[in-house]
Every structure is written in structure tokens, then in C-alpha cells.
Design a protein around this nucleic acid. Sequence first.
DNA 1: ACCTGAACACCGTTCAAGT
DNA 2: ACCTGAACACCGTTCAAGT
Lengths: 244, 244
Amino acid sequence: MTGKARQTGRRADALSKERIVEAAIAILDAEGEGALTFRTLAARLATGAGALYWHVADRGELMTAAVDHVLATALAGVGDAADPRSAIRAVALAVFDAVDAHPWAGGQLTREPWRPGALRLFEGIGAALLALGVPERARFDAWSALVNYIVGAAGQNAANAVSARSRPTGADRSAFLGGVAERWARLDPAEYPFVRDLAARMRDHDDREQFLAGIDIIVAGIEPLARPQRSPGDEVTHGNRIWQ
Amino acid sequence: MTGKARQTGRRADALSKERIVEAAIAILDAEGEGALTFRTLAARLATGAGALYWHVADRGELMTAAVDHVLATALAGVGDAADPRSAIRAVALAVFDAVDAHPWAGGQLTREPWRPGALRLFEGIGAALLALGVPERARFDAWSALVNYIVGAAGQNAANAVSARSRPTGADRSAFLGGVAERWARLDPAEYPFVRDLAARMRDHDDREQFLAGIDIIVAGIEPLARPQRSPGDEVTHGNRIWQ
DNA sequence: ACCTGAACACCGTTCAAGT
DNA sequence: ACCTGAACACCGTTCAAGT
């Protein structure tokens, strides 16, 4: 159907990098990173393992392409926000939810920082900081703090799911975190008083809300660096600006 | 020399989990994660591959033990700080520098959150937040934001080094970041205006200082949540507290 | 141009056999 | 109790041969 397909006279079910990446994502989601091999992937696509190498250079390219597909798709769904703070939260949540759904992607979201997915993340946060009125000198640091937190926290969260089992489900992650809380609860209070207290809080906490709370803390830390800024037709009242 | 060695009559150069982990770290540092195999490790220790399995369960345990050794050692070197903000910075920098020296550890610092290294990181940050006067309700979120940032940002930084080459040196990382900046500079300014600007700033920025700037931003975001708190004999004047 | 599938050079891990 | 090293069941990747 595409120009290229017509041009080369390719059958609709012919191999292509897109089809290979999509099949890889299906395997990664269903059975985890360990289950993705060129043999299982080739079997799923009803071809030989070597055929895949005509379309992708190696396993690394397959993985980075899969990661980018997930990230770019998630960020393409982020609509325009009313104000910069909402924009930051929307981008952050899109990344968090994408990694939550595809934990294997968590560790390598920005391994190739020139891919569309990474670029959209970077640009989305940067544009919001511009709109927030963060002056040039502070903007790079603020941007880096937000992006590192978003990517890092989303990745940590995914790692908990992956640690639970190679086939990550919600139940497995709760079980993993429950086990962590149990170990923490048995620590010597003299040596680790804080972590011991943490154990109790682990039970009833929501990862996603805690992730958002972190975003809010960082944005609160950035705001004093910003100049008040008002875009045309912006009626939103910014209640509690720290710099008044 | 140790009680256990005397007890079992072990020779000084006999295998032990400690010796195996140290040899693994040496290989990981020198040649990267890809170079660590049970065969190369066994050869280095002048034994058979199977012998290692008497002391470690599998490759996963070997890696997590190596990661913990690096993290715990780094944090053991952190001295007492004059005030909570310095304590947070000291812990954060210790992690950053450790991961900088051992990039292979970056992605899995908290994969086993009950190991001594992770516990000392968690407790160090938590204790500082207590000293800072962050009330219980906000403490968990503040702690999570800081820990996620520290682990995430240090890991991202390490990933840049690993991406450069399996054998990471400072030169390789600069080269990698230089290549990223070049790609960014060629982006369409209409689509990615912010990232394009970023490219110019990449040249002369210091990863370590930017990491610390992020810590300062997060701490600034936490401070409004805290109650002023004064430890006995604390003469430090806290200049610019936002909550005044 | 694209696909096939056997072959190569590896891995992690196991285990009977040794000391 | 601890070590040896061959063997097993895999991998990613290559490549001559096909269409």
C-alpha cells in the first residue's frame, strides 16, 4: 500500500523493519527481554533467522528501534496543555505509563538520543521550560534535572517489574515490592531507622502518584529560577508562585 | 587469615566469593560488561568455569554482588556532613563518581534494594531529610524524588559512556556526546527548536556539575515542605530559605 | 532484491568424576 | 568441602545458495 511497497512490488505480508519491530515488541511485552531471540522472532514471522538481518543490522538496532517505537507512540498521544506545568506532567506521565506497559524499554529510553521518541521527550520538556520563563542560564540545568528524573524514575519503576519475573505482570511487581518491604522491616532499627520506617509506607503507596509528586517537587525547585511569564490569552491564575 | 579461612584450612589464594567478585570487577572495569564471561573469569583465577558455581549461584548474583561492592565501598567513604544539604550532596556525588568509574554498574544500582550499598544510599538520603525537618507526610515523596534522580541521572550518565564503546574511557564518552551534539545541530529548527539550542551547550558543559545542579533544584523544591530545624550547636545560617 | 537455513563461534550452566 | 573440565542446550551472526 505504501509507495515503497508498490515500487518494489512487495506482498502485503512481506518482511519489513516495521513488521519485525512490531513482532519483537509483541514478544517483549508478552514474555520479556530474555524471550526475544532471532530464532523465536523468525519463527513468529514464518521465516528464517538470517532473513531478519536483511532489515536490521543486529540485536542492538532491533532493541533501540523497539524502544523508540514505544516512546514515540506514547508521546504522540500527548495533547496540548493549558499551562507549562500541565505540559510537563503530561509528558512525564506519558513516559511513565509507556514504560509501565513495556518494562523492557525502561533501561534504554535515551540510549540513542537522536531518535524521534527521545527528541519529542526532550523538546516537550524544553518547550515547557521556555513557556515557564526559565532564563537561558538556568534552562539547561532545569531541563537536565527533569529529563533525568523522568527517565530514571520510570526506569527504576520498570526494573522492579522486571526483577519480579521475566514475564512482568502487575501482581508480580506488587509481590516484589512486598518482599522488599518485608526485608526492610527486619532491618536493625539502630543501623537503618529510616529505611525501616519506609517498609510500612511501601504497602499502601501508589508508584504513579509518587512519581508525579517528584515532578511537582522538581518543578517547585525550578520555579524560583523563572521569570513570571504570561502567554497571550492566558487567563490561568498561578496561585502559589514562590517568587511572588 | 580470617576465622573462616583458618576454620576450613583454606589456602590464602583459594577461591572465595570475595575474590571472584573482585576479579569480576577488574574485568568489568577494564573491558566492559560484554567481556565478563565465566570462562574469562575462570581463566583469570586459574581455575575451571564450573568451580565458580560453587561460590556464586549464577551470572545474576555475580553482577549484583559486584554492583553492591562498588556502591557500598563508595558510600563507606562518605564522611559526616555539617548540614543536611551537604549530606545530600555528598551522598549524591559519591554515587555519581562511583558510577562514573564503573559504568557497568549504572543500570542496576538498586536492583536488589536490600543490599548494603543500596541501604546506605537510602538511609543516607532519608536521614538528611529528617535532619532537614521534612514532616512525615512529605518525607516519602521527597526521599523517592532524590533517590530516583540520583540513581537515574548517574545511570544515564554511565549509559553515555557505555554507548561510546564497550571499553569506556573519558575520551570515548566525550566523543559520543560530541556526536549527539552534531546530530542535534542538524535538526530542523522548526520542529525541534529547543533541542537544537541544546546542541551548542553540550560542548562546554560539565556532567558532574549539571548533576549537582539537579540535586540543588530538587532540594530547593523540598525545602518549602520542611519545617525550620536546628540541631544542637548548629551555627550555620541558612541564607535563602524560601519559606522565610 | 530479498529470503533460506545450515554452519560458526561463542555463551551460561550442569554434573560426573576427581582430590 | 571444594575443584575440574567436558558436555549440553542454547545464543547472535554469517553466508553460500536459492528465488
